[in-house]
Design a protein around this nucleic acid. Structure first.
Length: 976
RNA sequence: GCCCGGGUGGCGGAAUGGUAUACGCGUAACACUUAAAAUGUUAUGGGUUUCACCCAUGUGGGUUCGAGUCCCACCCCGGGCACCA
């Protein structure tokens, strides 16, 4: 007998399969298609680890099974190769990220080959390949053109270590998901994708995914976080008004005097039914309303201090402080509860979030725990307005309400003030709404106060720009010249420049400050009426001919007046912005002003005004024919940390011509996040080499949707959500044929070290799959990996346990190479095994499928195996252990083609059930004996047989049988 | 705090409301061997007064002829969200 030399066998077949391309899928094949997908890896320097092996093997086993079942299976692979590690490696070692990436890809590919994975290598994609990211950029442009990509300056999550902005989804417990650094809030210009516009569609889509795990759907649903509620308006009056109303105003007069209200604000609430219980309002310190009230309040300093304090505290500090409430009252202003006209105080507190709802809430302390905590701390009134029950009685509604209130007040006296949320209760203490059910009251009260229904989501827009080098450049161009025509009319002032150095400095942003002497006597030289936000038309003219050479629009960012040049000089901040040149003295500044004769005189007389200005540009998409926008090859990639991409410093790349006006323009320097390339890669697999479009529609129609997508739970609110969003968008544009990209989602648990801990380098407990494959073979590695436990559960690796699989394969080898017996009838054990393994594979219950093959082997070893038994056994293990199966198949059938394109064995359901079955006999539910009965025996016969059993008779001891329960082929239970 | 999972021998785990502990690991004895390894055979939930009985699926209740499985309450472990009004 030949020895089972796994090293030789595995190498041999890996080479042969690659050469014969037996795993390549044909487009438009007549066989029904199956698309099996795994999350493509990031090719890191570390290589692939156990965490990769698990889904890849799971996908591979399933693909191999489906191929044998007669499907045209595509099981593609690629590389998600943009991202920080490659860039950081490049910075450290001074190599191109593309070079280290290529090296890592080669290594990962070698690993995949050595594991016997049946990928279709002809469809390999790489997100960093210009032929690929051309289409990533193209999709971005479609989003941009539909208004779904926008630029905005705001507070975003900033990782100080990686020196880049992060999406909401990338922040976990206030830390950077990638490096664990505490995330800061930074005010930055960023590109966003309007994923919120798709919130409802993303939610709706989940309802049509019956083959997704509930846990995944629930997690996405919670992340989107839909709430239905109402927007309610509260009028705000200031102290002076309040004094007026003191003079005997009643409700009637209040209405007629409503014009006195200075302003109003809106709150979002899911419980408008509790409006009568709203005893104060709370605004977010960073929200839009707070600022506008500052001028009206009497304790401005205190409030500003609180706002400052909120800004300074990191997310972590806030969490560490727990739910201890802090806040400040906006003294001097009041809101009016629109239900009863009551004047209620307005507070600010950091428990109200600026970017959810309107950034303001109505507080109902009796029925909301957070409001209650706050009210308790600051001694604010608490009013109970809900009760769980309404009594159907003769009493009047008012009387009942009064009684409920009395009970609640009693509770209050006893110290139980908080009444709970009362989801399905009745109103009390709410005027004419008393005893109305809460659900009905929500809408009735909203109507009464002129509010409107509002659906609110927790989901935020996707921060889509990164200030790093190694990513897809955002294919946009900022043009100042194109901004001039439409803004020329709006310009408040035209300023002329004659010196090229000054003009250049203005254009490239090294000179940000423009000063003018104030001259109140002459209106055209006054300049004092230019305000922040105004546009200025700057003209560069020829000194002699006064002909305009170039014109650009600038916007005033800030404005300051100084009484003289020394005052300007004293403002260090201003001097830096004035020019890139360092002015060391007032004298030098004066020298700079001396080009106009009477200029210094005018400054001396009236002072000067200084505007911080920035060029106004129009964003122009790069024309499709100019895609892809590729990265410049440079030596330095270091992130700047200023919020600018390192690309911003590469003048030769940044400066370009505007595709619109052909004038000088600048490229957008932010790059896309790593999630961009993976948001559509499964589409590219359908047509990976297409030069004209991201993929041919016919091919997409054939291959998509993905039938099974294997991956990790950690991508649920990241990649899985993002890619659904892009797919839905592309579907709306008619580019892809299906709404939902993945029919079935299968998540895997972690592989833990033998002690149950996570595998990690620092713990020194990492099991290297390459080492195991080298020692025991890829077949053993694969089969053991799935045998460890259920695929969706975490499992612990065991070095001892894997020997069981090694022994199993050795025994299979021996059996197949050993004696072959003849048998007249079919072996029912084979049919049972085929049925069980097939069903388990369909349900991804790989561990029990493997155990079924073991049971089958045990039977064959005991009873002998025919040629057919051997063939069945080898086919059943083929998806798990493809190399040994292929070798044994060749031994069994020297002329046959590969086992992996052979037909999966069929089973006869009749042969899967035994003629007789062993049935347990219980007395009062306790097992006393086991009896073998023929399958179709009648209950009377069973009774006769069972009651004559010796063990049963002695156990009964003559007791009377009260009941005889016979569940055919399952159980017999005698009740006495 | 809220939302998902999960808790079964010494270990990984199996069980459409119907013989709990399949399959594998480990352990023990035996066979082969000068010996060891490998291999094979047998045994293996715990307890006891062992031809039998009792107790065991995180804990405590309940439904049922019968519960690991269904219901209620609680405990522990893993994951997610976290002041989202």
């Amino acid at each position: 007998m030949k020895k089972y030399d796994f090293k030789k066998i595995e190498k041999k077949w890996q080479t042969k399969w690659a050469k014969d391309k037996i795993y390549s899928a044909n487009d438009f094949d007549s066989k029904p298609k199956k698309y099996v997908l795994i999350e493509f890896p990031y090719p890191s320097g570390e290589g692939l680890h156990m965490g990769h092996l698990r889904p890849y093997v799971a996908g591979d086993i399933y693909s191999r099974y489906l191929r044998m079942k007669g499907f045209n299976v595509v099981y593609p692979i690629g590389w998600d190769a943009f991202g920080l590690p490659a860039e950081n490696y490049a910075i450290k070692h001074g190599v191109q990220p593309s070079v280290s990436t290529a090296k890592n890809v080669k290594n990962a590919k070698r690993q995949m080959m050595s594991w016997g994975l049946s990928f279709d290598w002809e469809r390999e994609v790489n997100t960093t390949d210009p032929n690929y990211f051309k289409w990533t950029q193209w999709i971005f442009l479609q989003l941009f053109k539909k208004g779904l990509a926008y630029e905005s300056t705001g507070l975003i999550n900033w990782c100080p270590k990686d020196k880049t902005g992060l999406a909401n989804e990338e922040v976990v417990n206030g830390r950077c998901d990638r490096c664990g650094t505490v995330v800061e809030q930074k005010e930055l210009r960023q590109w966003y994708l309007k994923i919120t516009e798709y919130a409802e569609k993303l939610l709706e889509g989940l309802k049509h995914l019956p083959e997704w795990p509930e846990a995944v759907k629930i997690q996405q649903e919670n992340w989107i976080g839909k709430s239905e509620g109402a927007i309610i308006r509260f009028d705000i009056e200031s102290q002076t008004d309040a004094d007026d109303t003191q003079t005997g105003a009643d409700d009637g007069q209040r209405k007629s005097a409503s014009s006195r209200y200075e302003s109003a604000l809106e709150v979002f609430t899911t419980r408008p039914d509790t409006l009568f219980g709203a005893t104060y309002l709370v605004l977010s310190p960073e929200g839009k309303y707070t600022k506008s009230f500052l001028s009206q309040i009497t304790n401005r300093e205190e409030v500003e201090n609180y706002i400052e304090r909120t800004k300074k505290r990191t997310e972590e500090e806030r969490t560490a402080e727990g739910k201890e409430k802090t806040g400040a009252e906006l003294k001097g202003i009041f809101a009016t509860n629109p239900t009863n006209g009551e004047r209620i105080p307005v507070w600010i507190s950091d428990y109200v979030l600026a970017n959810y709802g309107t950034g303001a809430i109505m507080a109902v302390p009796a029925h909301d725990e957070r409001d209650f905590e706050f009210a308790k701390k600051f001694n604010l009134p608490i009013r109970v307005v809900l009760h769980e029950k309404a009594q159907a009685g003769q009493e009047s509604i008012d009387a009942q309400a009064k009684e409920y209130l009395r009970v609640e007040n009693k509770k209050k006296e006893d110290g139980e003030i908080f009444a709970g949320a009362v989801e399905n209760g009745y109103l009390i203490n709410s005027g004419k709404f008393n005893l109305m059910p809460t659900e009905k009251a929500k809408w009735e009260i909203t109507k009464l106060v002129g509010g409107r229904k509002k659906i609110q989501y927790k989901l935020r827009d996707w921060v889509f720009s990164r200030q790093r080098y190694w990513g897809e450049p955002i294919p946009l161009i900022h043009c100042g010249h194109c901004a001039v025509p439409e803004n020329k009319e709006k310009a408040k002032l035209e300023l002329n420049f004659y010196y090229p150095e000054v003009w250049e400095a203005l254009k490239n942003g090294t000179k940000k400050l423009e000063t003018r002497a104030l001259n109140p006597e002459e209106p055209e030289r006054y300049f004092g009426n230019i305000k922040v936000g105004d546009s200025l038309l700057l003209s560069f003219k020829d000194k002699k001919t006064k002909k305009v050479k170039e014109q650009l629009i600038f916007r005033v960012k800030s404005s300051n007046t100084y009484k003289d040049i020394s005052a300007l000089f004293a403002d260090k901040n201003a001097v830096v912005k004035f020019s890139n040149k360092k002015y060391s003295s007032v004298k030098e500044l004066e020298k700079g002003y001396s080009y106009t004769p009477d200029y210094l005189e005018r400054i001396k007389k009236n002072g000067l005004i200084a505007w911080e200005i920035e060029p106004v540009t129009v964003t122009i998409p790069v024309p499709e024919k100019n895609l892809p926008v590729v990265l410049p090859k440079v030596k330095k990639y270091e992130p700047t940390g200023t919020g600018e991409s390192p690309l911003a410093g590469i003048a030769s790349w940044v400066n370009t011509k505007c595709p619109n006006c052909k004038g000088d323009a600048k490229r957008e320097t932010n790059t896309m996040p790593q999630w961009a390339g993976s948001s559509w890669y499964w589409l590219r697999y359908a047509d990976p080499k297409n030069k004209k479009e991201l993929a041919d529609k016919k091919k997409l129609e054939y291959w998509t949707p993905v039938d099974v997508y294997f991956g990790g739970m950690e991508h649920t609110t990241l990649h899985l959500l993002y890619s659904r969003f892009w797919n839905l968008f592309l579907y709306d544009q008619g580019i892809v044929p299906v709404k939902e990209p993945y029919v079935r989602r299968q998540v895997h648990g972690m592989i833990l070290a033998s002690n149950g801990e996570k595998m990690s380098k620092s713990r020194g407990n990492v099991v290297n799959p390459d080492f195991i494959a080298g020692q025991l073979g890829a077949d053993t590695l694969r089969m053991y990996e799935v045998f460890l436990g259920p695929h969706d559960m975490s499992v612990s690796w065991s070095d001892q346990g894997i020997m069981g699989i090694k022994r199993f394969l050795d025994r299979v080898w021996k059996l197949v190479n050993g004696e072959t017996i003849e048998r007249q009838t079919e072996n029912p054990e084979a049919h049972k095994a085929i049925k069980k393994v097939g069903e388990d594979l369909e349900g991804f219950r790989y561990n029990t499928a493997v155990s079924a093959t073991m049971i089958f082997l045990n039977k064959l070893e005991a009873e002998g195996a025919t040629q057919k038994d051997k063939e069945v056994l080898v086919k059943l293990i083929a998806p798990f252990a493809p190399h040994i199966a292929e070798e044994l198949w060749l031994i069994l059938n020297p002329k046959a083609k590969s086992i992996h394109i052979s037909e999966w064995p069929k089973f006869d359901p009749k042969l899967c059930v035994d003629e007789s079955v062993k049935v347990g006999v219980q007395i009062n539910g306790k097992l006393k004996d086991v009896v073998e009965l023929s399958r179709d025996i009648s209950e009377d016969e069973v009774k006769k047989i069972v009651l004559s059993l010796e063990k049963i008779n002695s156990a009964l001891g003559g007791s009377k049988v009260k009941r005889f329960i016979y569940v055919p082929n399952k159980i017999i239970n005698i009740v006495i």
